[in-house]
Amino acid sequence: MRFTKDHEWVALDGDVATIGITAYAAEQLGDVVFVETPEPGKTVKAGEGLAVVESVKAASDVYAPVSGEVIEANEALSGAPETVNDQPEGAGWFARVRLADKAQYESLMDRAAYDAFLETL
């Protein structure tokens, strides 16, 4: 699993990247009440908006950590947004993207680097 400074995580399986927000981000947001996931088929570029996650008091953009085509969105979140709080780095994933460039993945932080980054906040 890799991480960004905007608190997204990416897990790679073949050329399919599963994307979500980190446990730290979920904690900071508070109770998640709604997630706007992208439509499958949409092409996203790294750094662009991929999804929107809403708590009661804030709406935050989730950026695509990598470029590619969205092949699946986590439909279960529409009925159970609390999954993002309960299992942020598991069942609370947002979308799956077919990766265009694997080097993008490799350039992201690993767990140790992300943890070190969190220490600086």
């Binding site: 109770d31 009440v33 009661v56 947004p81 609390e82």
Partner: peptide, 11 residues
């Protein structure tokens, strides 16, 4: 009323 559950209202 006591404090209201705004999370429930939004979810």
């Amino acid at each position: 009323l006591k404090r209201l559950d705004e999370t429930l209202a939004a979810r």
